[in-house]
């Protein structure tokens, strides 16, 4: 146990918590946006994977990390758009569509990687770029928290800024208002002439873009290459983070950090005196426990509210 406490006491550990939280946070914000509009996006995993791939390929082709990033964003959005088309126009079950898109991403990226570079499974021959780290100079100058919050990849800062942008978007703009209205009561939105389909299209594309940013971080920040299935279920963990975080971006952030914490701990497997496999399991166990706690809390909240109403009704009857 003491080794865990030792690890948690280091600033490297907390630095890595923030680092591993980044892709999960991006995707979880994406999940939040689409869920708010009443459309579940399970293709986040696929969006991330395609974007990670596009980032590597385009940054290598154009010799610019920024063009890589742009490509990643566009591809991420495109996957969201495809999901919207399949689910809202072709009326394919949205979960099945997303499963299909994820399968296509897993195979398609490797297929295209081979086509563009001849590499099998990992982009070893592509000279791709990474996005820069920011505030590296400050890391050593500010005591204690400096090494934790400075010197991260630019996208890490973008992710945390996006928490507040998303909050602003959802709760302070007309578009966010419509988004929430569609997700909560689409009849209400429909009855005042808001196109439900249009809003859901926009939400899925935005959600794909968010996941795309997460994918770009994976291949141009977290590591500097693309490899087969490199997102390793982060899109799914993000769904769980969203489910736990409730309707607010801040909650989503906290839940994502929670998973980041668990994943970071898993990266220290060698130093913890527990079998490595158990350490690696932590994030997923956290996810299930979190999911159950959140879902059962929501359920019991509803029950309690109903009970209260019922009691009120019977007691008023007694007074008659």
């Amino acid at each position: 146990m003491s080794s865990i406490i030792d690890i948690i006491g280091t600033s490297e550990f907390w630095y890595s918590v923030i680092r591993v939280t980044t892709p999960i946070l991006f995707a979880a914000l994406g999940a939040l946006i689409s869920d708010s509009a009443g459309v579940i996006n399970i293709a986040l995993e696929g969006s991330m994977l395609w974007s990670a791939f596009a980032g590597v390929v385009f940054s290598a082709w154009f010799d610019s990390a920024w063009i890589g990033l742009l490509a990643a964003i566009i591809i991420g959005g495109l996957v969201g758009l495809m999901l919207a088309y399949f689910a809202l126009n072709l009326k394919t079950d949205i979960i099945l569509s997303a499963i299909a898109l994820n399968l296509m991403a897993a195979g398609g990226t490797i297929f295209l990687l081979f086509v563009v570079s001849g590499d099998r499974g990992i982009s070893s021959s592509l000279d791709s770029r990474v996005l820069p780290k920011l505030f590296t100079g400050l890391a050593d100058n500010v005591p204690i928290i400096g090494p934790v919050i400075f010197g991260h990849n630019v996208l890490t800062y973008v992710a945390f800024v996006l928490v507040f942008v998303t909050w602003f978007f959802m709760f302070k703009t007309p578009m966010g208002l419509r988004l929430r209205a569609v997700g909560e009561n689409f009849h209400a939105a429909d009855s005042v002439g808001i196109s439900v389909k249009k809003i859901q299209y926009q939400a899925l594309v935005l959600s794909g873009i968010m996941a795309g940013l997460g994918g770009a971080f994976m291949s141009m920040g977290y590591v500097s290459w693309f490899s087969q299935n490199m997102t390793a279920g982060r899109g799914f963990i993000a769904l769980a983070a969203k489910a736990m975080g409730g309707v607010s971006p801040i909650g989503t952030m906290i839940a994502s950090l929670f998973f980041g914490f668990a994943s970071a701990l898993a990266n220290y497997e060698a130093e913890i005196s527990v079998p490595a496999e158990f350490v690696k399991m932590i994030p997923y166990i956290f996810t299930i426990v979190g999911l159950v706690v959140y879902a059962s809390k929501k359920q019991s909240d509803v029950k309690r509210a109903r009970q209260k109403q019922a009691e009120a009704a019977t007691s008023s009857k007694g007074g008659e």
Binding site: K172, T173, P174, G176, L177, R178, R180, A181, E184, N185, H187, A188, A189, S191, V192, G193, I194, V247
Partner: peptide, 25 residues
């Protein structure tokens, strides 16, 4: 009722014809 429960009365009122100030609702 065709109302969105988590929104305020004013927000429900103007849904679809929202007044704007810059980007902001």
């Amino acid at each position: 009722f065709m109302l969105v429960p988590s929104l305020t009365v004013a927000e429900n009122m103007v849904l679809g014809v929202e007044p704007k100030k810059g980007l902001k609702f």
